[in-house]
Amino acid sequence: MELEKLGYTFDRNEKEQRIYQERDFKALRELKKLLANNISFVDAIKAVVSMGLEGKTPLSRLAFSQMKSVYRSVN
């Protein structure tokens, strides 16, 4: 999955299958929104990864400002 290639991590079970958590669904919903706003696939993936939704990483000010600039550029 492209998200993982750029650093997003999913929980996995003992068979290495992804275990989807609420944070993962949030990341996928955000990816869908970005793509619907004509953000390129690669830029959308990078934006979602930079949001820090995976694990326990909080959304940083930098990631938030990057997201604001992405949304401004499409509107």
Results as ranks from 00 to 15, higher is better:
M1Y: 12
E2L: 15
E2A: 12
L3Y: 12
E4I: 04
E4M: 11
E4V: 10
L6C: 07
L6R: 15
L6F: 15
G7S: 09
G7D: 08
G7I: 07
G7Y: 08
Y8A: 03
Y8D: 07
Y8F: 14
T9L: 08
T9N: 07
T9H: 10
F10Y: 15
F10R: 03
F10H: 11
D11I: 00
R12A: 13
N13K: 03
N13G: 09
N13M: 06
N13A: 05
K15H: 07
K15E: 08
E16W: 02
E16R: 02
E16D: 09
Q17R: 11
R18G: 03
R18M: 08
Y20C: 05
Y20D: 10
E22S: 14
E22K: 09
R23G: 01
R23A: 15
K26L: 13
A27S: 00
A27D: 08
A27G: 15
L28H: 09
L28I: 09
R29G: 04
R29H: 05
R29N: 07
R29T: 09
R29M: 08
E30W: 00
L31C: 07
L31R: 03
K32A: 14
K32N: 15
K33F: 02
L34T: 04
L34E: 04
L34I: 10
L34D: 06
L35F: 02
A36T: 04
A36Y: 07
N37R: 15
N37T: 03
N38V: 01
I39F: 06
I39E: 05
I39N: 00
S40Y: 01
S40R: 02
S40V: 04
S40H: 00
F41M: 03
F41L: 15
V42Q: 04
D43W: 00
D43E: 11
D43T: 03
A44Q: 00
A44N: 04
A44S: 14
I45G: 00
I45D: 06
I45R: 01
K46Q: 13
K46E: 15
K46Y: 12
A47F: 04
A47K: 04
V48K: 00
V49H: 09
V49T: 05
V49L: 07
V49S: 08
S50E: 15
M51K: 10
M51Q: 13
M51P: 06
G52F: 02
G52I: 01
G52L: 05
L53Q: 03
L53E: 03
L53K: 09
E54D: 15
E54M: 08
E54H: 14
G55M: 10
G55C: 12
K56G: 12
T57Y: 07
T57K: 12
T57Q: 14
P58T: 10
P58F: 04
P58H: 06
P58W: 04
L59M: 11
L59W: 03
S60Q: 05
S60F: 01
R61N: 14
L62H: 12
L62A: 12
A63I: 13
F64A: 11
F64D: 05
S65A: 10
S65H: 12
S65T: 13
S65F: 10
M67C: 10
M67S: 13
M67G: 05
M67H: 14
M67Y: 14
K68W: 00
S69N: 11
S69P: 00
S69I: 08
V70S: 12
R72V: 04
R72W: 00
S73L: 09
S73P: 03
S73Y: 01
S73M: 04
V74P: 01
V74Q: 09
